[in-house]
Simulated assay, not measured.
Amino acid sequence: MIHVLLSQNDVYRDVVDHLTAGGAKATLIGPTIAPSAFRSKASILKAMLSPALLRTRGLWTKNDRVLIIGWQALPILAMIRCGLLPRPEKVLVMACFIHGARARRIVNWLWRKLYFPGMGFITFSQGEARNLTGTVGIPSESVYFHLWRQALYGAADPASITDDGSVFAGGYSNRDYDLLLRAMQDMPTPLNIVASERNAIDQQLRPATTVYRDLPEAEFELLLARSRVVAMPLRSQGEACGQSVLLRVLRNGKPLVTTRHESIEAYLGTDYPGFVKHDDVDSMRTTLQRALDDAAFRETLAAAIRVAGRKLDQREGPGQEIEHFLLA
């Protein structure tokens, strides 16, 4: 039997719904929070000590397969290693992202200490996979790459997909909004940024910018759908990042100018013409200005986005893919 352990409610619905429809059992082992809520490091650490972890006692046998989604994987694996929980036939860990070098070193050490035969990882970026196999020493056959995708809340009405002349930027993790503000300092173009309260943004770099904090998903996507160009300034560090915003870009067919990052290359290909160098203000400024002013270039970007969206739609569903990993 397959067991799915969820660190928070109502996440990865495409995966969980598919697995439970086939007979898997899903168990929440973390706090009940809003599905789109941004989780701080402190809240994640607190959740690792949640009494909900006790729900795993007696849940599976050594003949079962277990998928752990999120950072509750650490205490669960520790309990398995200590013999407090039975070691299942196979256990896969998914959705543990890190963007800082110091945190990565600590977690690498923990993965190394907690590893046991039958344990593996589902990664959302090739960088994450390389770290696990090359640095941590996890066997390559125990690391599975998954092109993350799911049906997101808040889809815009097709009639809302317009061009109001603005630039839209949104998202929370691994963002470099100050670089974008510097790149657009001398541009008269309206800029809308949707970020978290925890994102540090120096709005004095470009006062003529509207910054929204923690908008509902429908409002987030409406601003994206109405924009002329979407900008995604990513930091060079980090593993999986930018995918949820990218899925909304694909859904709305919007031209995208983004920092080159292998998480995004996995969807758009390495030759996507809207990539810019990381940490390069001039590159971001030049490409954004061209996308705003040159209708032909803008259409080239949008056409590439539409092609990438069609390719993603043709892939096997995320639930089926994860199921294959579990049963392999």
Rank of each mutant, 00 (worst) to 15 (best):
A24N: 13
L152W: 02
T61G: 15
L152H: 03
A169M: 13
Q150A: 13
D280V: 09
P216M: 02
I193E: 02
W60V: 04
I201H: 09
P188Q: 05
L327Y: 11
M119K: 08
G83I: 00
F97K: 10
P86L: 06
E323D: 14
V66W: 07
P188A: 06
L222W: 03
R39D: 06
R260Q: 04
K25Q: 14
R213H: 15
T135C: 06
Q150M: 14
T286M: 14
F97L: 10
A308E: 05
V245E: 14
N9P: 03
H18L: 11
E89P: 01
E221C: 07
S43A: 13
Q289P: 01
A24I: 11
V229P: 12
V107H: 15
A151W: 02
R298D: 11
V281I: 12
G22E: 11
L85R: 03
L256N: 03
M232G: 03
E316A: 06
N192E: 09
E262D: 15
V211W: 03
I76P: 03
P233Y: 00
V66E: 10
A73P: 01
V249F: 15
R235V: 02
T209F: 06
A101M: 03
A21N: 11
D64H: 07
V16C: 07
L288V: 04
L67K: 06
D202S: 04
T259A: 00
K25W: 01
S173I: 05
H146D: 01
A195E: 04
P139M: 06
G171A: 07
S7I: 01
S236A: 08
G23R: 11
F297V: 01
D10R: 14
R182L: 12
S36P: 01
R112V: 09
T162H: 10
Q185S: 04
A155F: 07
L74M: 13
R104V: 05
Q8T: 08
L191R: 04
L326Y: 04
A328I: 00
G100K: 08
V211Y: 04
N9T: 04
S196T: 09
P31C: 08
V276F: 04
L19F: 02
I2C: 01
Y177H: 03
Q204S: 15
V136N: 13
P233H: 00
E197D: 13
A101R: 07
R228F: 12
P273M: 11
E316D: 07
P216H: 02
Y172E: 10
P318S: 01
K62S: 13
G319F: 00
Q126L: 10
L110I: 15
D293P: 01
G23L: 11
I69Y: 05
E197G: 14
P158G: 11
I322P: 01
D280P: 12
R310D: 12
F145G: 01
A225I: 08
R104T: 14
A225Y: 10
M187Y: 09
L327I: 09
K311N: 06
F38I: 02
D280A: 13
G154Q: 09
R298Q: 15
K254N: 14
P190R: 05
L181G: 05
R105T: 12
